[in-house]
Amino acid sequence: MSRHNVEIRTDGRSVGEVVIDGYDIAGAVTGLAFTAAVGRVPTVRLDLRLIDVSALGSTTAEVLLGEGVADALTLLGWTPPESDR
């Protein structure tokens, strides 16, 4: 699993910013969990606004990613299709 610099800023009621390697992806985050234990690298689990396009019933569809989703996926190792770059 790759490691990233993560900053989470909150006002106590909701998450205001989720910054990974300098990019705020809060617009794509629907939830998160932070876990830390002595002697272990902390982990952050992110829940992102994504849809399952495998059940659309069509062999061709245009997939649109919500604000911040492509940035979040790219930071986590995804490579966008050549046509989207």
Rank of each mutant, 00 (worst) to 15 (best):
E7G: 09
G12K: 02
L64T: 15
R85Y: 02
S2T: 07
G77L: 00
R13V: 02
V69L: 08
L32G: 01
V29N: 01
V18R: 02
V69C: 04
I8D: 03
A37H: 13
R13D: 02
A26D: 05
D47W: 04
V41M: 14
I20P: 00
G77R: 09
A36V: 15
T60V: 15
L65F: 14
E82S: 09
A28F: 01
L65I: 08
I20N: 02
V6I: 15
I51V: 14
T74Y: 09
R45H: 15
L76A: 06
A70H: 08
D21P: 02
Y23K: 11
R9E: 06
R49V: 11
D71Q: 10
W78I: 01
E82N: 06
R40F: 14
A33Y: 03
T10Q: 13
A61Q: 14
G66D: 10
R45S: 14
T60H: 13
P81K: 08
R85V: 10
L50H: 10
D47N: 14
S14T: 13
M1H: 03
R85P: 00
L75F: 03
G57T: 07
P42V: 04
G27I: 02
A33D: 02
S54P: 01
G68K: 05
R45V: 13
P80H: 04
A26E: 05
L32F: 07
W78G: 04
V44K: 03
E67A: 12
S14L: 07
L64F: 11
V29Y: 05
A28I: 04
M1L: 06
L50M: 13
I8F: 06
I8E: 07
V44L: 15
G27E: 06
V19W: 00
V69K: 07
T74S: 12
P81T: 05
E62Q: 15
V6K: 00
G27V: 03
L65C: 09
E7T: 10
V29W: 05
V69F: 00
E17I: 04
V19I: 15
L75S: 03
R9G: 09
T43K: 15
A28M: 03
E67S: 12
A61T: 14
T74D: 06
F34I: 09
S83P: 06
D24P: 01
D47H: 14
D52K: 11
V44C: 11
A61F: 06
S14V: 10
A36I: 12
G16D: 11
A72M: 04
G57L: 08
W78L: 05
